[in-house]
């Protein structure tokens, strides 16, 4: 099968691969790049375990072809921690926003998109914002609190440093 050469910038590093046209982005991330924080939980674009940011927008990477992401930016859970944990990661830790941890990376990436576009969401907006991600362990309540934690922290660090 003929393969295409693609380069996707993942978490700031260019990743090049020779891929089949049909290769799903999630498999490129997991298998070709060994970034296994992005998970697969379904085959019908429902669960959101594979959520990543594509050019800053949260998408289900099981429903994007790797070739479609050629030349674009992808952010995964592995890129969230800088010098410190991202406030969302911290929020999930502090508010017990996870149990088995399988949906967590996708949940965090979805929440990142939500907060990027709506820094101070209401509980209802958070629930809607993460409704493309299924969690079977937490009942979502502590995930909502985790996102609120991050929202507050991002707001206060902005107002502290934000001139």
């Amino acid at each position: 099968m003929e393969k295409k050469s693609i380069t996707i910038n993942i978490n700031g590093s260019p990743r090049t691969g020779e891929v089949e046209d049909r290769l799903l982005l999630v498999h490129f991330i997991r298998d070709d790049c060994a970034l296994t924080g992005t998970h697969i939980g379904c085959d019908s674009t429902h669960c959101g375990a594979c959520t990543v940011l594509l050019d800053g927008t949260a998408v289900k990477s099981c429903t994007v072809l790797a070739v479609q992401a050629d030349g674009r930016e992808v952010a995964t859970i592995e890129g969230m921690e800088g010098e410190a944990l991202h406030p969302l990661q911290e929020g999930f830790f502090e508010e017990h926003g996870l149990q088995c941890g399988f949906c967590t990376p996708g949940m965090i990436m979805s929440a990142k998109h939500l907060l990027d576009n709506n820094p101070k969401p209401s509980e209802e907006e958070i629930r809607c914002g993460i409704s493309g991600n299924l969690c079977r362990c937490t009942g979502y309540q502590n995930i909502v609190k985790s996102v609120q934690y991050a929202s507050n922290k991002l707001q206060s660090s902005e107002s502290a440093g934000g001139k």
């Binding site: 959101g48 959520t51 927008t57 949260a58 429903t63 939500l114 809607c128 409704s131």
Partner: peptide, 9 residues
């Protein structure tokens, strides 16, 4: 329509 992640694409 669908869910917010789907709606992004």
């Amino acid at each position: 329509i669908a869910d917010p992640l789907v709606r992004n694409l």
